[in-house]
Design a protein around this nucleic acid. Structure first.
Lengths: 192, 192, 192, 192
DNA sequence: CATGAATGAGAATTCATTCAT
DNA sequence: AATGAATGAATTCTCATTCAT
């Protein structure tokens, strides 16, 4: 017998609403009632799709992390040189950070606050493995410094969050050329 | 003297308690009642020293930012070379980020969430002016790239927050040598 | 036959689930959703068999009361002496109270709380008429005290609920002999 | 410095309101909001005096149990004969059950539902020790049957709850004489 | 200045019931 | 007949803030 199906539209609407509210008001000011209203469902409906508020946040976090990673490895080609491969990934991430503003800000907010449990945080990290592999190959070939991948990340990827932030505040303009310069700066800090 | 009755001890205790609670539980789980309890005063007392919760957070933010800046320019000597001057500031900031964990984390949390009003945020930024001046001199002398100071910050100072984070999670060990390497990497990314 | 589509199995399963949940958690913690889950049907299905929660409880109450009464008059023979007739009924009820624990507890819970409407309560009482008749005959014959049947009930039948309770808590052991003694005590309190 | 004191009046008003509501509507229909309203305080105030709803119920239960026990041993004199001592206690309890209707009904409701934790239940039982002692003396002197005190309770005290119930429903009238008869019936069921 | 009590507004979550299929 | 999704109203409890002393 046909039954009204738990439709993904509502789940999506709820995640979207949460993203918007958490970004605008902060996690502490994104009550379930507002999320429901913005998603145009009853508060009770949230609990059909998510166990509780924490679960809602966790799932949103994981989905955005997954989207981020997918984005990062678009057109990624292991056959190219280490630097070119890395440029591709770096540019992808820059593109995400600078243009997917809500997602980008959400990740920053969550990553810097004790909001999410360590389990979800770890899950979210897994996706970046191909980048770590690339760096390792670069180190074996002697083109990348022999330092912890966390240092490589700190100097190449992490700064993009700050740039995104400054761009949003209109303190910084990033053209194509600027971006290429920025990449070169990043590369300079880790090349062997 | 008789007028300054509001004893600073209590104010300090309240700021300390807030710092601890916000760092452990997140801003969203640091209620005034707990702050009061941890500072061993009545909830009502908080409102003698601070207008409201927002004001408490703002003041804490500003005090920590001020402490951070003071720290940054310890032993700062404009007479030295650009690189050496910068090394001094960079090392100071690294020291702060890696060792003043609660303060460091608090700043990260606040800087990445829409918790604080733009006014306080701007006030907090002012203190770094000497560094901006240093960079400008470096650029005039041709030893630092002619790019936005935000880019310089993104590639040299901002990564320290990530390194601090990783160190806390024991994913990274930073010895004196490592730090010198890290500084060189930072310098490489901005030197002309 | 084709008309009786509403299968009695589901109705039974629902009543059973309700009995179990109300006994374990109390009426206040036996939500329709749990009842449905335990009966392995949809919440919506409950409303095919019962008007609403109150009706479900009422019907359960009445069914158990009916079962109780049927039990009470098993092997009941009006031809025997008043005392022997009464012994049979008393022993039956004791058997029910001491061994049909869920049903017994459910009746106690409902009978002592303002959960059920007076109408259902009255319906539930009707079934004991033969016992009242027996007592009246006993009174006419001068073997039972001339007091209100409620007093007779209070001293002979009602105590069994307490004994059942104590037995469940393992504060009391009731062997065959004990039971015979208990009956004699009951009888002593009402015999003329 | 003088401070507004946690006044017992409010605590009392809350317990009273709870008693009334639980008796009228049942535990399941006595929401904190109504309790607060009836006690003329804010819902939040309840949580100054009680940890949570369970604690409120527990404390109410214990206070009523204590009142019940105090009542039971009014004018109790161990010097009298076993039967006379017992009559005094029995009459006190009858008086309580028949006249302190709300308290009496509350105890019945709680005692027959899985509302309260075993710990509170046990605490509530302690107070009846003097009665158990009396019975034991009676048994040693050979005037009371050598059976479990639970049986003695079941046949003498427990029936009073039923009589109270019937009296409330106006199915039974209990005059002074009736009560004396009722006591004799109780005594007959346990005397050696 | 300092306080513990008090609070109205609002938080997350649950519930009995209905809807749409 | 049967269902899983959906829901508005209600529930317990918390919070930032104020009151009265």
């Amino acid at each position: 017998m046909a039954i009204r199906q738990k439709c993904d539209k509502k789940r999506k609407a709820l995640l979207d609403a949460t993203l918007t509210l958490v970004n605008n008001n902060g996690f502490h000011a994104a009550p379930m009632s507002k999320i429901a209203k913005m998603a145009a469902v009853s508060p009770a409906t949230i609990y059909i799709y998510f166990e509780n508020k924490q679960d809602l946040i966790n799932q949103l976090y994981l989905e955005i992390k997954a989207a981020f990673s997918a984005y990062a490895f678009k057109n990624y080609n292991e056959e190219e040189s280490i630097k070119d491969s890395f440029r591709q990934v770096w540019m992808n991430i820059a593109d995400f950070k600078l243009n997917q503003i809500p997602e980008s800000n959400f990740l920053s907010q969550i990553d810097n606050a004790p909001i999410i449990d360590e389990e979800s945080r770890l899950k979210g990290l897994k996706h970046l493995q191909p980048l770590l592999d690339l760096w390792e190959r670069g180190q074996q070939k002697g083109v990348i410094k022999l330092v912890s991948p966390y240092l490589l990340y700190a100097y190449t990827i992490y700064p993009l969050a700050f740039l995104s932030n400054m761009k949003q505040k209109e303190l910084l303009i990033l053209s194509e050329n600027n971006l290429e310069d920025a990449f070169e700066a990043a590369w300079n800090s880790i090349k062997a």
